[in-house]
Amino acid sequence: MNMYWHELKATRKSTIIWTLSITLLIIFFMSMYPTFSKEAESLRKMLEGFPDALLKAMNFDMDTFTSILGFYSYIFLYILLCGAIQAMILGIGILSKEVREKTADFLLTKPVTRQQILTSKLLAALTSIVSTNIGYLITVLAMASIVEPNSFDQKLLLMISITLLFIQVVFLAIGISMSVLVPKIKSVLPISLGTVFGFFIVSMFASSIGDEKFRYITPFQYFDAPYILQNQAYDLTFVVLSIVLVSVLTAASYIIYVRKDIHAV
């Protein structure tokens, strides 16, 4: 437990900053909605002039765009992007910071197993992500009822919003496995941003060409908001895929970390 609290304290500041940024971002986006819905007709006309592929890449759907949920599913993509970056930085930093700050010797010569170390760190990272999500969900529900006076399906809003947590868990797992595999990570930020933007670009590409196969490559496509909106359900294949991916990556991280040589620096 002491390691968990220590980790939590160490990530506290960044968790608060990320939560604030993401909630501010959604407040900003949502407050634009009344303008959008008022100008719906002219906006629709304007967008009709845009190339089809571009609209698809940006997740635009003409029919739903001007409803609150349609609008939300479009802006949610950028919330996901932020969330993915947060999770990735957490995941990569969690073990690599011990090597970078040269504190691995301190921790690993204490009477604990490496499994315990990794578990504490993982739980601390999960706690951090869950707190961000709680803050986000409250904000999103509040904002939606403020900007949309008419009734709308709150359950769907919640179903879409909670995928932020799912995506973050997937990226956390990717981050941790990378931090175990790469021998020495000098700087977390470039690697995190690179990986997340890489997946994001692939996702935009996948949306625009509409090829199913590409959806498997990038976690951004696993919980497609327009899909949830249309079917009122998650795409089961990708739910299973996410669970498998997270389990495999986490298990691999444990196996590798327990056997890894920690070199003097």
Binding site: A10, E101, D105, T109, K110, P111, V112, T113, Q116
Partner: peptide, 30 residues
């Protein structure tokens, strides 16, 4: 290993500890 390390005190040749902590906090953590 964990059992053994309860009774081991180790001082590495190069010491670097969690920089943003106070000495007393680090020692308490230890």
């Amino acid at each position: 290993a964990p059992e053994i390390k309860k009774e081991i005190g180790y001082l590495p040749s190069e010491v670097f500890y969690y920089d943003n902590m106070k000495v007393i906090d680090l020692l308490k953590y230890s």
